[in-house]
Design a protein around this nucleic acid. Structure first.
Lengths: 113, 113
DNA sequence: TAAGCATATTCGGATATTTACATATAGTTC
DNA sequence: GAACTATATGTAAATATCCGAATATGCTTA
């Protein structure tokens, strides 16, 4: 059961919860997270894959890091980023499925006209 | 498999995907969605439950509507809002679980000091 | 320690988001 | 149609976000 919104702890946890969602709320960051599904990648690698200026990659990675969505580990010259938790992708997939269903439904409406 | 980020369709779908996440990326809206789990609620009801000014409630509901997260249906004087899809809560729960695990882990570190 | 590559940060401007307060619209009932 | 209740929108201020360009930092190897 959900507590009253004035409850301080719930408030704080909900803010963290929203913060995680906020980390996901950008197309570039979503592409980044999916790019990390198979294996860790370094910044340069991501930069090329996503076709971005390198500072932009770093900035988005910082946000993902701050929200605990990715973990970066340095190996010599490179910093390899990986997903902090596989369930992030599960959640993204779930939302993407909702979206797909919606788009498919719209497409079927067009079809039947 | 993920296509190149230059692909126009992927780009568009990913923007919609990010839009959905953006709809979830606010503590008030998260509380709203959870408040709708058991049954539809009208604006006044939500306003009181969440302890908000009524225009604030309406504005957040508008965003949730635009992202297809809730559906509002008028019944006479009231507009009842309900979740557009149960999987929204599934996704939120999944993310909340990740958060809980993280917080629990931190708490256990404190405990063992 | 100098050079070089990988990554991060800073700064600026443009744009978007959130909120409060006031006001408007929509539907109902008398 | 006037009064009333429920909901939505306009406006303005505060705050946050995003990006490009320039620059800084970190690590490695010579």
């Amino acid at each position: 059961m959900l507590m009253n919104s004035k409850h301080p702890l719930l408030q704080e946890v909900t803010e963290l919860h929203a913060g995680i969602c906020n980390g996901l709320a950008d197309p570039t960051r979503i592409l980044m997270l999916y790019a990390l599904v198979d294996s860790p990648r370094n910044v340069n690698d991501l930069t090329k894959t996503l076709n971005l200026p390198q500072p932009t990659t770093s900035r988005h990675l910082k946000i993902l890091r701050q929200q605990g969505l990715v973990i970066g580990e340095r190996d010599g010259l490179y910093i390899y980023y990986r997903l902090a938790d596989e369930r992030i992708i599960e959640a993204l997939d779930l939302l993407r499925t909702i979206l797909n269903d919606r788009l498919t439904y719209r497409a079927s409406l067009v079809q039947s006209q």
